[in-house]
Each structure stands twice: as structure tokens, then as C-alpha cells.
Design a protein around this nucleic acid. Sequence first.
DNA 1: AATGAATGAGGCTTCATTCAT
DNA 2: AATGAATGAAGCCTCATTCAT
Lengths: 217, 217, 217, 217
Amino acid sequence: MEQKLADKIKKINEEHLKMTDKQSRIIEVAIEEFSQNGFASTSTSQIAKKAGVAEGTIFKHYKNKKNLLLSIVTPTMTKLVAPFVMDGFDTVFDQEYKTFGDFLRAILKNRFEFMKDNLSILKIFMQEISFHPELQESYKEYIAQPLFKRLEDTITHFQEKGEIKELPVHTVIRFTVSTVMGLLFSRHIVSTDASWDDKSEIEMTVNLIVNGLSPES
Amino acid sequence: MEQKLADKIKKINEEHLKMTDKQSRIIEVAIEEFSQNGFASTSTSQIAKKAGVAEGTIFKHYKNKKNLLLSIVTPTMTKLVAPFVMDGFDTVFDQEYKTFGDFLRAILKNRFEFMKDNLSILKIFMQEISFHPELQESYKEYIAQPLFKRLEDTITHFQEKGEIKELPVHTVIRFTVSTVMGLLFSRHIVSTDASWDDKSEIEMTVNLIVNGLSPES
Amino acid sequence: MEQKLADKIKKINEEHLKMTDKQSRIIEVAIEEFSQNGFASTSTSQIAKKAGVAEGTIFKHYKNKKNLLLSIVTPTMTKLVAPFVMDGFDTVFDQEYKTFGDFLRAILKNRFEFMKDNLSILKIFMQEISFHPELQESYKEYIAQPLFKRLEDTITHFQEKGEIKELPVHTVIRFTVSTVMGLLFSRHIVSTDASWDDKSEIEMTVNLIVNGLSPES
Amino acid sequence: MEQKLADKIKKINEEHLKMTDKQSRIIEVAIEEFSQNGFASTSTSQIAKKAGVAEGTIFKHYKNKKNLLLSIVTPTMTKLVAPFVMDGFDTVFDQEYKTFGDFLRAILKNRFEFMKDNLSILKIFMQEISFHPELQESYKEYIAQPLFKRLEDTITHFQEKGEIKELPVHTVIRFTVSTVMGLLFSRHIVSTDASWDDKSEIEMTVNLIVNGLSPES
DNA sequence: AATGAATGAGGCTTCATTCAT
DNA sequence: AATGAATGAAGCCTCATTCAT
């Protein structure tokens, strides 16, 4: 499966290189409009106009409006978890981190910028996932499952080392993920705060999680 | 402002009593369809058909499709925070709870059922809030602000009692709210789990928050 | 025929007395809206709302929207020419006037105020006549024909007296009527002129007509 | 301003050349239907059907129903006064005519045919001008003002030559225009007369105006 | 690869009118 | 006499998509 994913990502990048000027403009505009008005409320003609392209051109590259959506969302979502599933890298990875806190800190640093850059696409993804079975499928296969497995392994590992309380794994995952998501949400989506310090917020959040999960209490 | 809100809620209930049979059916169906397909992808003719009503009837009661949406979402969202802002109730409320944990437990019990009953509407709200300035306005005025204020007071109170670490209030709020939201999400939206025990999950979640925020660590 | 008309007018006035409050308000508002937005672009619900009346009430009094239009326009149009056709009055009438100019002056004075008061209805009439055969019929029967006949007699009379050039009667009528209409139009419809003197404009207009028709040239 | 108008007319003709077959058919049918049933009572589906075109096609070419109306009416109305405002032509023009009668005769001949050809559009214009501010604007700018100015100059010129009575210019204009309009109206709109002789009616009308305005009386 | 005219289904909304109260 | 909920046909317009060029 990992092989399949790696292939897919390679293919995506190749495709990206093959893109004509107009095609890139279509994608660019589509991302902007979809995330701003929602998929259903964005018309292909609107995209065409903003991209400076004829209406027909969109359909030369993407057979469907839905196809255009998937072409935008799917590769980004898979790239998001790529670091977690990179072949061979796995095992080395967790050895590197002495504590669960270190692990969280690394993950957060690793993906923080990426999310910032792909915020629009993430927003589209979250808006649309419940309406498109195809998105749900690939979400489960390429994101939820690998991520869950990875987290499960890591958490079990630190539970065995006695750093994490003996709670059901899914409860720990839920707590961890929702706290991290809460951070990213506040930072990137809701935030109107001028005085926000990434480093310290990350640090506090990691500590809240680690303390919450600490067995001594 | 609290008075204003109470008035609004009273008015809503009165309006509810005045509703025609057909009007209730319209609302009922609209909730179902909006939450299932999204607002933009639900047509008024679809609603009319399912409600067994002429399409024109919808527009006799709600001048717009958007108005229909707001008529569904706004009163529910205000009701959601009503217990937090009810006159006089406030002060009694926090005196009652000795610890932050007790407070959280009470809130969760209090609103858990309500959320369950109004899940569809909550889903609609979350899907649509970013596209409708009107929703954002009333969200800020009737939900975010009262809730934030109430939480701020409560948290400061327990910080002064030494039960909560001296972190910035908004960080504590974020951590608490996102963990609680994570619980509700897992329970009501994602959950496919047959073996889920509300009581124990609530208890674990409260403990995770309380431990996370505990000053001794 | 004159008898028929007189009956009609009597009946109209009687009806007017029988009108309920709401009915008068409907008429009043309908006149205003029809003349402002045109018949086709005025909705019955718009009228109902402005008149402070239920939608159904309009249709209790007037079986149709068209019927409402006719109820407004027809009686006014017949009243407009009434003085020209009043029984017995006829003959006395033209004896009274020594010159064609006197005749015109009298007519203009006579109807100037009436037009002012019924301007909205006249506007509606002119807008709608080409779309409603019923209006055309009653126009021909109650207005065009009596008016034409009256003018024909009068003009022939003054031609015989040598005051009016020997042109075809319909040409004289056209010239006279269009000049008078031009005056009324400028005065009541187009006019934005603050410095307008009714008396002198009427006098000049009458002179222009009389000179135009004078045989000595 | 004259330059601006000339540009506009040029542009209109160019656009006319670019027209699709279907587009011309839409215009053609729209003119017919608007003038027959009125703008508000003509539906776009009606036009589409008669033009043998999909309803959507209308809106590819004209963003609105109103836009379709303006596209029909405005260019014709500007063309109607074009000869009065053509650059350079002005001065030559009035030198050519020795008397006011000559001037009128020339104008009438000049525009008589044009009106006949564009009767439907003129009718639409007159019906709709009071409901569409845009029409009023361009009427004032491109028709009323240039026409008024031209007539003013001409009339003053002939007043100075002693051919026209010393009445207020706007009174003279009103008299002249309404008489001419009365002629055109009778001829083209009301006329059911089989025995109508254009030449003689024009001649009589011109004489009536000239006599009316003659200073010797 | 790109265009843009054309489509027809369907979207939201308004309308005149009816009818039970 | 008056109401106002209800209707369904029709109105204007937008949409995703196709196809000849």
C-alpha cells in the first residue's frame, strides 16, 4: 500500500510539471474560489472567467467539475500524511524520540508550515468530505488508517515505557488529535490575534497533552 | 444582552406554536436535506416535494432560501448556549461546583443530549458559517462572546483557587473546548463504534483536561 | 347612446358611495402603483400590502386583476368626455362661443384641472390601451367617437363662418388635438419647469392653433 | 459629445456585424413581441421559442431581460437623431434652408421613412421610457438635449430673420414638436385610413405650423 | 491545446387566484 | 366583508457540459 501511495505522489508531481499555463491558472483559481464560496456555490464559468480561460478549456483538462475538485484535494491530502508513511523511515523515526512530547513537537513542526501553505485546500477538504464518497474512501485509505496505525503504535510504545496512562488507545488518540487540531484551527482559521507566538503556543499545547496523559495523577 | 437573548428565545417558541402543519414539515425536511446534502446542493423543489407541499408554500413562510436556513440554524444555536447565560442562574451555577472537573462534568451532561437531538442542525451550522456573514454575526453575538466570557470567569476563578495552571486564559479555553469538541465529534459524528460508553468517555475526557491543566507538573 | 353613458356615470357614482373603506384603499393604491410601475409590473400582493388589506380581499371585490384595471380606468375616461356629450347641453354650448378660439379656451379651462387630478389614471390608460381590447372598445365608443363628432361639428361650423381654413376636417382635428395634447403633456407629465404660467401658456397655445388654421395666409 | 455619439453608433454597427445568426433572430423576435405585448408581458421563454433558440442562449448574449431591451432600444433612438448632430453637417444644414418651412419639410422627409422602419422600436421606447431610468438617461443625453439645442438655434435664427413670432423658444418647440408628432402618430400608429396621402399631409402640417408661428397676426 | 456559442435541465422566486375559516 | 394559507404555473436566470472550429 505504501508503494502504491508513493507511486501516486510521484505521478502527481510529474503531472504537475506537465501542466500548461492555463491549467495551472485553472487550479489556482479553483482552489481560491472553492475555499471561499464552497464547491457547490462556485461555478465553472466563474472559474474560467477569473482564470482568463474559455469555459470549454476547463473540461478539456478535467472531465467533470467533481473531477476538478478531486484533482485538487486528493494529492494534497495524501501529501499531508506522506512523512508518516514513508517507507523504511518509520522505524528509525520513533527511535529518534525519547518522549511522547518530543514526538509531538517534531510532528507539529514538521506539518505546521505545510498546513499553512495548504490551508485553502484543507478547508475545501473538510467542507466537502461528507458529500463525496470518493473523498471519504481515499481519506480512510490514505489518511485515517495510516495515521491511526502510526499513532496507535507510537502510543502503545510510550504506554509500555510508562509515559502514558493506560487508557484505551482510541481515547488517547482522540484527545491528542483534537487538541492538536484545536491549535491548528485557532492558529490558521479562526485567529484574528495579532499577539500570537507559534513557538510558545506549540510548547504549551504539547505540555497540556503530555500532562493530561501523564500516569502520575 | 441576556434579556435580549431571553426575549429572542421566547419569541422563537411563540413562533413555533403559530406554525402551520405544512410549515413544520418544511422545516423538518429542510433540516434533513441541508445536513445531508449541504445547503447549496439542496433545492427548494426537493424540499417541497419531500414535505408534500407546493414549492410556493416555502416562500410564503420564508422569503428566501437563505432565510429558511437562518430560521433553522439561528434559534438552535442560541438555545445551545442559553443555559450559560440565563439570568441569575449564572452565579448560583459556579458556586455549586467545587472543582473545575465538576463544572465540566455538569456542562457536558447538560448539553450532551441537546447536541444529540440537534445534531443535524449543528452540522448545518458548521458547514455554512463560513459562507454566511449573518450566521457569523449572530454566532459572535449570541454564542462566542457569552460562552467565552463565562469560561473566562470560571477559569480565572479556578486559577485563583490554584486548581488551574497559570496559562493564558485563551490557551486554556482552546484546550478545553477542543477536547470537549473532540469528544462530541467522535461520539456523534464520526462514531461507528458499537462499544462506546458515554459515562466512562465523559469521565476520561474530563480527567484528561483536569490533569492537563493541573498546576502540579 | 348618450343616455347609456349618463346611466353608466350615475351607476359609477353610486358604486363609489357603496365602497367600503378597504375597497377605496385598494383603488387608491392600485392607481398609484399601476401608474408608477405599469399594470403588468404591479402585483396584486403589492397592492394588498400597501393598502393594508389581505390578498384575498382584492379578489372579493374584483374578480380579476384586469377587472381591477378596468374598474379604475373606464369610469374616469368616460367622465373626461362627459361635458362634451351631456344631453341638451350640447347645442347651447357652441352657441355660447363666438370664435373657435373661445371654444378652445373654454374647453381647456374646463378640462385642465380634471386632467391634473386624474393624471395617474390617464397615464395608466395611455400605457394600457394598446394591450387591452376592452379598453380600446370603450375608448372608441365613449371617447373617440363622441369627441370626434363634437369636434367635427364645431369645426365645420367655424369653417362655414369662414374662421377656419378649408382643410380636411380630420387634418384640423389632428392639428388641434395634438397641439392641445402637447400642452397638457408638457404641463403635467414632462414639466420640470418652475416658471410655468398656465394662463399665458394656454393663451399662446390657443393663438398658435387659431393662427395656424386662419384662412388669411 | 458629438464625437462620442458617432463612436457609439460606429460601435453599434460593428457589433451588429459580429452577431450570430441566433442572436439576430433573438433581437428580431424580441422587437416584435415587446412592441406587441409590452416588455413586462413578454417572457423570455416566449422569445426563445419563437426565435427557435434555447432560452439560455438569450442570456449568453444579453445578461438580463432588461439588457436585451436596452440593446434594442438605445441604438435605434440614437440613430434617430444622428442626422441632427452629425459633425460639420450642422452649419451647412441650416444655411441650406431659406425658410423655417423648408427646414421642417426637409426634416420630415428625412426621418419619415426611418420612423416607419423602426416603428416597433419607437413604440417600445415610448411604452418603456417611464419605467427605466437608464432609458431616460440616454434619452436626455442623446436625444432631448441635442434635439432641443438644434431646434433652439434654428428657431432663434428664424426669429431673428423675422419669420417666427417672438414667443418663448420652448413654447415654439413644444408647438412644433407636438404637431409633427401628431402627424407621425396618426400616420403610423393610429392610422386605419386607406386614403392617406403622405405628401399632402406633410405639406398641410408644415403650413399649419408655419402659419401658427407667423408674426403677421 | 483552446475557444466560445449553444444547450436544456433545473434553480430560486413571484404571481394571480382559490378556499376554508 | 375579510382573511391569509396554499397552490402550481410560469418567470428569469444559472449551470455544467458539448461540439464545431
